[in-house]
Nucleic acid binder design. Structure first.
Lengths: 190, 190
DNA sequence: TGACAAACTTACTATTTAGTAAGTATAATC
DNA sequence: GATTATACTTACTAAATAGTAAGTTTGTCA
């Protein structure tokens, strides 16, 4: 009976990775249990239903993001550095086995995932948008960002772009992804 | 024994709709057969494997797109009108039951779909990019579009944005989607 | 009218899926 | 040292899945 140190966290890590890799309907409890060398039921012990597991993954990410943006390491950055930090999150996803963002993966199969998970994804998307919007406002007021229209709309555009670009990179490669990242900056920086 | 008129086309229509709605791993042959009032095996008669079906859907779309862009109704438009036509495709998808684009749906679960389907998606994505790039070039040369950087990169950005925006709209609604569309124009038109 | 092919149905298989109930080993606590 | 909670395993189940083999109906054409 080999126990995993901190099973719950290990399961969440793997589930998050699988969600970003194959989507909610593309992985099963068997993927997790076989990888961890435990039985199926062990996963159900920690997360009774697949919906519970999906929700827990998103919830953990939301909390992580909240901690990040409220930490002085990010909070005290210049708007330009904040943007780079944010873009870096997506660049790292791409670098990490071609993963896509949780929000994008879940929204692509939005009509084929459980209700509770949908709510959680919606909440996460809103939070990302709010932060990005305020960063754009801050940067425009400070004179480092330049764009037409409302910060809320520009934020929604940039987030959509990042979401799409990660997916695009799977078919067309990392170079194209980085070109899009550079284009985002060209379209934003003065 | 009620026969469907033009079964193959009807199956492809439904499969395309399901792909855009639930993704490749989110629908089954049973969804199609029950909707059409036939048996499972009837679908397998026309498309032996699910991979065959997926490939056929994408292939049909690629041919449709090729016909469109080579038809004078699109070909002879101004660059600005071409852009509006292209954006209109995505607006219509959103209006049609909140569908997302085939490319986005398939790339979100890229690592959980068959090889042959991946190739087809890759080809489709390239074709969309090529057309959009040449339209951007045409528009910039004509002085109606203004953007920094390379047309190829701006095309990749816009396509990524559209892909992501359709998915975002599922969680955040149609209004946000239209705001992104307007922002694309603000970021492109002189 | 007979042959034949197209478009199915019936009936099935093997596999995977999420999920459960009951038992067991281990660790912590009283 | 006994009790109890934690973290599992064993052993299932029911449903859904893609896919197949063999038979049946229907329209077409020589």
């Amino acid at each position: 009976m080999t126990r995993i140190e901190n099973s719950k966290r290990t399961i969440l890590n793997l589930a998050e990775s699988l969600l970003q890799d194959k989507g909610f309907n593309g992985f099963s409890y068997a993927h997790i249990s076989s990888e961890l060398g435990v039985k199926n039921a062990a996963i159900h012990y920690h997360f009774p239903s697949k919906e519970d597991l999906g929700i827990a993954v998103i919830r953990r990410y939301r909390e992580r993001f909240k901690l990040w943006i409220n930490n002085s390491r990010v909070k005290d950055l210049t708007p330009e550095a904040k943007l780079d930090w944010f873009l870096g999150i997506y660049t790292n996803m791409r670098a990490d086995q071609g993963k896509v963002c949780l929000v994008g993966a879940m929204e692509a199969e939005f009509n084929a995932i459980p209700d509770g998970l949908r709510d959680e994804v919606q909440g996460m998307h809103k939070e990302l948008l709010v932060w990005l919007q305020s960063t754009l406002e801050e940067g425009r007021d400070g004179g480092v960002f330049a764009f037409k229209g409302e910060p809320a709309d520009k934020a929604a555009l940039i987030l959509s772009t990042l979401q799409g670009a990660l997916q695009m990179a799977r078919a067309l490669g990392t170079k194209k992804f980085h070109n899009v990242i550079e284009q985002i900056k060209l379209d934003l920086l003065k």
